[in-house]
Design a protein around this nucleic acid. Structure first.
Lengths: 343, 343
DNA sequence: TAGATAATTGACAGCGTTGTCATTCTGGCA
DNA sequence: TGCCAGAATGACAACGCTGTCAATTATCTA
C-alpha cells in the first residue's frame, strides 16, 4: 500500500540514503544513479513522508504565515502567493492568524512555533512591524521574512524583508489628483500604528510640497483601515470647517475609499464631479464600488510569493541572493472613474 | 533546550507511555498520576512534537481544508472557523485551494493527501458536491466532512455532512419581498453546477407557489456567483421584455446583489423605491453597498467550526454524535435598506 | 480472605526519514 | 602500474512519539 524510501531503494538497487540524496537534490550523486532512482520513484509513485522528514531532519517541511489583518482580500492574496510557492517546493503551509493586541498571543505563538518546528515564517504587517515579535523570533532562532511598508533606503536589515513602497504609491496618487487641478486634498488615514499609514502620509506630503501646495492638519482624519472609518472620516471632513473646499479624498486603502464613497452618497455629493476619491491596493473592492475606484495596484499575491521565495532561499542557506527574488515593490496607479477634474 | 516526553517522564517519575496517555487524554490514568504528570508538563513547559506524533501515531495531527471558491470573505470565514477548532484540539490546518475544473487537480490532491497523511478533510462547496472527489476519498480511506447546501431530508449519509438550508433562506427572502407587495420577482442565479443555486431556486419557487404567484423563466438569469454576473444579469433582466414589471431581484449571493445594485445605478434606477434587491450570506459586502443589502445571514465561521467539530468527533471514532454539534444551519433574513414596498 | 477481574502502568519495538561517519569507487598523476 | 585524493555510496543510529502487549496493582465477589 504505502511506498517507503526502502521500497524505492530496493527497486533501484541502491541504499536508502542514496534515495534520500536524490529526493533532496543533494550534490555528489552520479547522473546515472540519479536517473536510476528517479525512475524507481516514478514507477512506485513514491511520496516522501512529511512527518518522517520533519522528525529526522533538522528543520521541518512547513513554513508559517502569520497575519493579523481583518481584510479578507488581503489575507487571501497573501496566502495564495505563499501557497503557490510552497507547492512548488513541497512544503506545507501553516496558517496562523493572531491578534497583536492580545497579551496571550506571544506565548501562544511561541508554543505554536515550538510544536511545529517550522522552517520559517512569513510575517505580514502590522505584525511584521512589531519589534517584540522580531526579538522573540531571533531569540528562538527561527527564520523569517518580513513584509514591510517602506523605501529601499530606510531598512537596514534588507536581507529578510520585502518592501512595498507606499510612499511612492501615495506620491503618485496625490500627483494624479494635483494634475487634475485639485488643491484641497484630504486624507483619511489608516491605523496610525501601521507603517503603511505613515509612509502613505509622507508620500502625500511630499507630493504636495513638490507642487507647492500647502498641507494642513484639518485635511487629515486619523482613522483605521476599515469601511466604517472611511464613512466617518469622509463625513467629518466634508462637514467640518470648509466643506466646499475639499475636492478630493485619499482613502487609506480601498475599503476606506469605499466607505468615503458611501458617505458621499449619504450627503448627496456626486463622485467624481463634485469630489474625487482614491484608494490603495486595488483589491476587488475597487472594482465593485460605484463609481470604480482610482487606486494604486499592489499585487499582494506576487509580493507574498516573493516573500516565500526569499524565505526558502534563506532556509537553504544560500549566501548570495537569488536573482529571481524581487525585494521591493512599488504599486502603480490605476485610474478609474472615482477621480476627475477639480471643479 | 528542547523538552521531550522522556524529560517529563523522568521528572514525574512515571514511564514515557504514561505521559503519552496523559497528553492524549486516554482513559485509565489515575487522577493522582494525571496530576503528577501534568505538573511536570507545566513545570518543563513541555510541547509534544507534532512531527513525532504524526510519524508514530496512526493518524496525523493535521486536518485539511479544501476549497475552490473565489470568494475571499467566504474562504476566510471558513478558514477561521476551522482554525479555531484546530487550535483547541492542538491540530494543524493544511490549506488546500484547488480548482475542480483542473484535470490535474485530482492527482495533485491525492499526492497531497498521501504526503501529509491528514487526519481528515473539510470540504467546502462546490468541491464537496463532486462525486468523484468523494469516491476518491472513500477509496483512500480518508475521513472527511462535507459542507453542503441542502435540507435535512434529502441527504442520506447524514453523519459526515453539515447542511446549510438554502431552500429555507430563499423561501424567507422571497416571502419578505412578497409581503412588500412584489409580484414580478427576478432571480440572478449563481453557478448552475452549485447545489446552492438549485436549492435557492427551489425555495424561491416554493414561496411564489405558496403565495399563488406564477413564476416565469424570463424572470431567471443563469449567471455565476460573481459581481460581474450580477451586473450583467440585472442589465439583462431590466432591459429585456417587460422591464417595468420587474420590481425585485434576488441576487444569487451578496456579490451578485452588489453587482445588480451597480447595474441599477448605471441605469438610473433607484433602490429601493424603484427596485428591491436582495443577497445571500450576509458577507461584509452586504453592509458596504449603497444602500445596504437585505440578505440572509449565514455564519460561515460557525458553520465551518462545526464541520471541524464533526470531523474531530469522527476521527476520534466516537459512535454517538456529539451533542454540541449542530449539523443543520438555516440562514435567517436580515432586512436592510435595499428592499422596500413595490411601487 | 482467597481468587478473580478490572484498572493502571511500563518495556520495547517501530514509524520513515536524515545525519554521521565509514567504506568503496573513480580518475589523475607519478 | 601503483598510489592517492576526492567523489560517490552505504550502514546504522537517531529523531520523539505511539501501539502492542505484558506486568503490576487495585477492586470486587463469594
Amino acid at each position: 500500500m504505502k511506498v517507503t524510501i526502502n521500497d524505492v531503494a530496493k527497486l533501484a538497487g541502491v541504499s536508502m540514503k542514496t534515495v534520500s540524496r536524490v529526493i533532496n537534490k543533494e550534490p555528489s550523486v552520479r547522473k546515472k544513479t540519479y536517473d536510476l532512482v528517479m525512475s524507481a520513484v516514478n514507477e512506485l509513485n513514491y511520496q516522501p513522508n512529511i512527518a518522517a522528514r520533519n522528525l529526522a531532519g533538522t528543520s521541518s517541511f512547513a513554513i508559517g504565515l502569520v497575519y493579523d489583518n481583518p481584510n479578507a482580500y488581503y489575507v487571501i492574496d497573501m496566502q495564495n502567493g505563499v501557497l503557490s510557492r510552497c507547492k512548488d517546493e513541497g512544503y506545507e503551509l501553516v496558517i496562523h492568524p493572531c491578534s497583536y493586541l492580545d497579551d496571550n498571543m506571544q506565548d501562544e505563538f511561541k508554543t505554536m512555533i515550538k510544536r511545529s518546528r517550522l522552517a520559517g515564517l512569513v510575517l505580514t504587517p502590522p505584525l511584521s512591524e512589531q519589534q517584540s515579535i522580531i526579538d522573540m523570533l531571533d531569540e528562538l532562532g527561527v527564520q523569517y521574512v518580513r513584509l514591510l511598508s517602506g523605501r529601499e533606503s530606510d531598512i537596514s536589515e534588507r536581507n529578510n524583508c520585502i518592501l512595498v513602497n507606499d510612499f511612492a504609491a501615495a506620491y503618485e496618487i496625490t500627483e494624479h489628483l494635483i494634475s487634475l487641478g485639485h488643491k484641497r486634498i484630504a486624507f483619511v488615514l489608516g491605523d496610525k500604528e501601521h507603517k503603511s499609514t505613515s509612509e502613505r502620509l509622507a508620500g502625500y506630503h511630499q507630493a504636495l510640497q513638490d507642487h507647492h501646495i500647502e498641507s494642513s492638519d484639518d485635511l487629515l482624519y486619523e482613522g483605521s483601515y476599515s469601511f466604517e472609518s472611511g464613512v466617518n472620516g469622509a463625513k467629518e471632513l466634508l462637514k467640518n470647517g470648509n466643506p466646499n473646499k475639499i475636492t478630493a479624498i485619499l482613502g487609506g486603502n480601498d475599503e476606506v475609499a469605499a466607505g468615503a464613497l458611501f458617505a458621499a452618497r449619504l450627503m448627496n455629493i456626486d463622485i467624481p464631479s463634485e469630489l474625487s476619491i482614491t484608494g490603495f491596493e486595488d483589491s476587488p473592492f475597487s472594482r465593485q464600488t460605484w463609481p470604480k475606484l482610482t487606486t494604486a495596484h499592489q499585487a499582494n499575491d506576487v509580493i507574498s510569493e516573493h516573500a516565500a521565495r526569499l524565505l526558502f532561499s534563506k532556509a537553504r542557506g544560500s549566501r548570495k541572493q537569488d536573482k529571481d527574488i524581487k525585494t521591493t515593490f512599488t504599486p502603480s496607479i490605476v485610474i478609474r472613474e472615482s477621480t476627475g477634474p477639480a471643479k
